[in-house]
């Protein structure tokens, strides 16, 4: 009996070891290897040749995700939570990236312009974020990778009271989670 337990323990340790080893091995295989290899031609390249740590790789990956997902928001018509044709095409690109990179999770923020009651706008912002999330899920992105939060009119990107500004504030913004 005792022997059995220790056998399973050893097996467990071996398995965990394999899994961790697998991780370590897999990470450097990604596209960063050519990059770090490239500077070999330059004379003072020695420090750059150090293997990036797990943490560095993770940060690089996050930066890439942000450049794809966060750079462009999805915009809405006044008092509407319905996606426009342009909004749908922007979301399609984001969906493609998220399907290829299921380790990335995002928070979609729903925002409104300043007009109207800020309490109603909180609910409207929730609807806008939810509309964007649903569209991504229709493409096949797992719902568990997407959180939503409404900010109503509380976090405008543009602060003047005119349509050119308002249209920038009526948006679903993508934040890549750390």
């Amino acid at each position: 009996m005792f022997r059995n337990v220790s056998f399973y323990f050893v097996l467990l340790v071996v398995c965990v070891g394999l899994m961790m080893g697998g991780c370590k091995k897999k990470a450097p295989e990604q596209e960063f290897v050519p990059e770090s290899a490239a500077p070999t031609n330059t004379p003072i390249a020695a420090p750059a040749q150090e293997e990036p740590t797990m943490e560095e790789l993770r940060l690089i990956k996050l930066e890439e995700a942000r450049s794809v997902l966060s750079s462009e928001s999805v915009y809405y018509d006044y008092d509407k939570a319905v996606l426009t044709a342009e909004g749908r095409s922007i979301l399609a690109e984001k969906a493609a990236y998220m399907i290829k990179n299921p380790d990335i999770t995002v928070t979609i923020e729903g925002h409104c312009d300043e007009r109207g009651s800020n309490e109603y706008n909180l609910a409207l912002g929730e609807r806008r974020a939810a509309a964007a999330k649903k569209y991504l899920m229709d493409f096949g992105v797992q719902g568990s990778l997407i959180e939503t939060v409404t900010y109503g009119e509380e976090r405008p990107v543009c602060r003047e009271s005119k349509e050119s500004c308002w249209k920038l504030n009526r948006r679903a913004a993508f934040v890549v989670n750390d």
Binding site: L122, A123, E126, R127, A129, A130, A131, K133, K134, T148, T150
Partner: peptide, 8 residues
């Protein structure tokens, strides 16, 4: 108001 799957 509570959101149920994005529906307030």
């Amino acid at each position: 108001t509570i959101s149920y799957e994005g529906d307030p």
